[in-house]
Design a binder for these strands. Structure first.
Length: 735
DNA sequence: ACCTGCAT
């Protein structure tokens, strides 16, 4: 489909280069004598270097025609004039135009060899001390290391950015480390397919039955399954999957597994009737979580004396009267060390949490609010009238590029000072984060966990919230009564139906829940555009800004990428008076609906009344107000706050006419249009449908195939993650 | 064969 062309020439000059990701803008002098502006990932590109590029011509709204690189074959400068322009450009630390000229005059086309292999010869030149010669050689060598790494990766068609990541992790020795063990590319940190890593290993002559290969495969399987939410794998499944991956016998895998267990990289333990194999870090986290929760439960001092009276006063003060379950929640928070509070949208979780906050304040408890995502934390803070932060920030999390390790300042050695911690959106907390939080709680600290267990689960491994609920060991208040919506709402009824595994009613006579059958994704997309552009605003009186299109996937005709393209074209078409700015594959236009895609605590915003603040959060949706003619900045209106983005922050925003159901978790809209089409099996799950339905306050239109709706309703597989926490809390082997 | 969180 995509048409690519090639371009060959010598780098004339570098206009821009980002040393972190290799993104480069340069002028290429082609063999036809033309100068072409070229952009792409070309780390340490330098003048004089020859390139054979594959890519295509594009028109940039500000910078005009340019060649966008997809693939590059590169060769170091070889001719004297190429070497001269390379060295004169400042590409090597310690070499300027004058030294460059002297070097090339003296060593000719051998110059680069001399620098790399015999730098002591450089001292023959005027003004070059041996110290400086060594520095020059060092700078050149580290560049060559990166270039060789890139070449190596390119041979296996791996993305060039990987070179930057490997260099950050292993420095100058990255290529040696990689040659030693190519399997470190597989899975997790670098995200390379096992088969690709395996192919590299084979080409390097690593034998198929070498221990390092089989062990790597076992760890890859465990890691890969952890990505899918499993805390452990049953031994037989692990062995079977690994043997299939390697096309080898089970005995070999068993031997490797034994070795890994001996080194404690893998822990095997009986969980109920399953022989469970854990990655070490997940095992430690699960055991710690169990023990610490038990400690918190036993340390709980009932401070319930006089609680009724306190609650009465809070009701008076807040001008409300609690429903029985809400009252029970507030009361139990005072009596129990650990409390679980569950409920779907509209069941009054927030009211209860505000009550608990008020109660803790009156009890003199130093209380901290936290949530697993930035936006959930922001919302929690606003609703409770006090500061809330991400759990990660609360614990002082940091991430080291060089080791790839996550660490927390707060922990057993330096615990949080709080007497009570309240966590919202618990369904999104995974096991590793839970363990990190528990490590930072002082014994006796109260812990209140709030959430909707039917929502989409955490990204990481574990089923923490539902394990805690189903363990039966922890006081739980389930809020069921729905206050927000009338019981006759089909949205609510259908949400419940889906939750119980029954098909939602798709018969269209129910006021707020409609189904439009479109078996073909192309027609699904067309119908969605028509709904959003004309039918809903004109026939149902819903303004476009109050409609959100949701879809399970990014891919395909009815995925976010295409829907955003067609919705942008329909709702905010190109106009002479609307400026545009492109960023990579994306095109932004004044008036576009966009979304912040990562927490940024530094974005500056201003309200019309002059209030100034900072911080936008992953999932915040706004509208592009103005694009600066030079393309240096743009302003976005988020709900009355006007935020200014600089060019380098553009990677943090994306079009938001359509977004994935996952992204919408935690938000609500007056009207939701859901694209219900077949997508990858992992996405055709009940939680996706339930979450999509419950995002709609007043109106929900499902467009698509009822078979897809049926598949999602039936499939509760995502709830079934291998995890031992529930079993351990129930008493484990003692039971 | 695909979705996603956080951190400097």
């Amino acid at each position: 489909m995509e048409e690519y062309s090639t371009l060959e020439g010598t780098v004339h000059s570098i206009i821009f280069q980002n040393p972190d990701n290799g993104y480069t803008v340069l002028r290429l002098l082609t063999d036809e004598g033309e100068v072409v502006n070229t952009v792409g990932c070309l780390p340490c590109a330098a003048p004089g270097e020859r390139m054979l590029l594959t890519g295509r011509m594009e028109v940039h709204p500000q910078h005009g025609e340019q060649f966008s690189v997809r693939d590059a074959e590169r060769r170091m400068p070889a001719e004297e004039d190429e070497i001269l322009s390379y060295l004169s450009s400042g590409a090597i630390k310690g070499v300027g135009p004058a030294t460059a000229a002297r070097m090339v005059e003296r060593f000719g086309s051998e110059t680069l060899d001399v620098i790399e292999r015999a730098p002591e010869k450089l001292t023959q030149l005027k003004g070059v001390t041996s110290k400086r010669a060594m520095e020059i050689a060092q700078s050149f060598r580290s560049q060559m290391e990166l270039r060789r790494l890139m070449e190596f990766l390119a041979r296996f068609e791996l993305p060039i950015v990987l070179a930057m990541l490997l260099e950050k992790r292993y420095g100058g020795t990255a290529l040696d480390v990689l040659r030693e063990n190519p399997y470190l590319l597989a899975g997790g940190t670098f995200g390379v397919e096992f088969s690709t890593a395996d192919e590299i290993a084979i080409s390097l002559g690593i034998p198929a039955d070498s221990a390092c290969r089989v062990e790597a495969a076992v760890l890859f399987e465990l890691d890969h399954n952890a990505d899918n939410g499993h805390v452990f794998l049953p031994r037989e499944k692990l062995i079977d999957a690994t043997a299939r991956l390697l096309e080898c016998g089970c005995e070999q895998v068993e031997r490797a597994l034994d070795d890994l267990m001996e080194r404690c990289a893998v822990v095997q333990e009986q969980v109920a009737n399953v022989t469970a194999c854990y990655l070490r870090r997940l095992y430690d986290a699960e055991r710690y979580a169990q023990r610490k929760i038990e400690l918190l439960l036993s340390a709980a001092a009932d401070q319930g004396g006089g609680v009724e009276e306190l609650i009465g006063r809070i009701e008076e003060e807040q001008g409300i009267s609690y429903a029985p379950a809400q009252r029970q929640a507030v009361e139990l928070a005072a009596r129990q060390g650990v409390l679980l509070l569950t409920g779907g949208p509209g069941t009054g979780k927030t009211t209860s949490v505000r009550g608990i906050v008020a109660l803790f304040r009156r009890m003199g408890l130093d209380t901290v609010l936290a949530a697993p995502t930035g936006r959930a934390a922001k919302r929690m803070g606003e609703l409770c009238g006090m500061e809330a932060q991400t759990i990660h920030r609360l614990l002082g999390m940091s991430f080291s590029e060089s080791t790839g390790e996550v660490s927390f300042i707060k922990g057993e050695k330096e615990p949080l000072e709080a007497d009570a911690v309240i966590v919202d959106e618990m369904s999104m907390v995974d096991l590793m984060l839970m363990a990190a939080l528990l490590r930072a709680l002082r014994p006796g600290c109260r812990l209140v966990m709030v959430g909707d267990p039917d929502q989409l689960s955490a990204v990481g491994a574990g089923n923490v919230f539902s394990d805690l609920i189903r363990s039966g060991r922890i006081a739980t208040v389930a809020l069921r009564e729905i206050f927000r919506q009338a019981e006759r709402s089909a949205i609510v009824r259908n949400a419940h139906a889906v939750n119980e595994g029954r098909l939602p009613a798709l018969d269209n006579d129910q006021g707020d829940f409609f189904f439009l059958r479109r078996r073909d994704p192309v027609r699904t997309a067309a119908t969605i555009v028509e709904l959003v552009q004309t039918r809903l605003p004109e026939k149902m009186g819903v303004p476009v800004e109050q409609i959100q299109v949701l879809t399970p996937t990014h891919k395909g005709e009815a995925g976010t990428v295409n829907l955003n393209r067609v919705l942008q074209a329909a709702l905010n078409p190109r106009r002479p008076d609307r400026r545009e700015r492109s960023w990579g594959e994306r095109l932004f236009r004044e008036g576009d609906r966009i979304m912040q895609t990562k927490n940024d605590y530094d974005v500056v915003w201003e309200k019309p009344d002059g209030t100034v603040g900072t911080g936008m959060f992953n999932g915040d949706v706004g509208r592009i107000e103005q694009i600066d003619p030079s393309g240096e900045w743009l302003t976005v209106n988020f709900d009355d706050r006007l935020a200014t983005y600089t060019a380098d922050q553009l990677s943090e925003i994306d079009l938001a006419y359509a977004m994935t159901v996952h992204k919408a978790q935690g938000s609500e809209y007056r009207c939701v249009v859901l694209s219900a089409v077949n997508a990858a099996p992992a996405l055709m799950v009940r939680g996706v449908l339930y979450t999509a339905i419950t995002r709609a306050r007043e109106l929900l239109i499902v467009v698509g195939d009822e078979a897809a709706v049926g598949r999602m309703t039936e499939n509760d597989r995502q709830q079934k993650r291998y995890s031992g926490l529930k079993w351990r809390l129930r008493g484990g082997e003692r039971a």
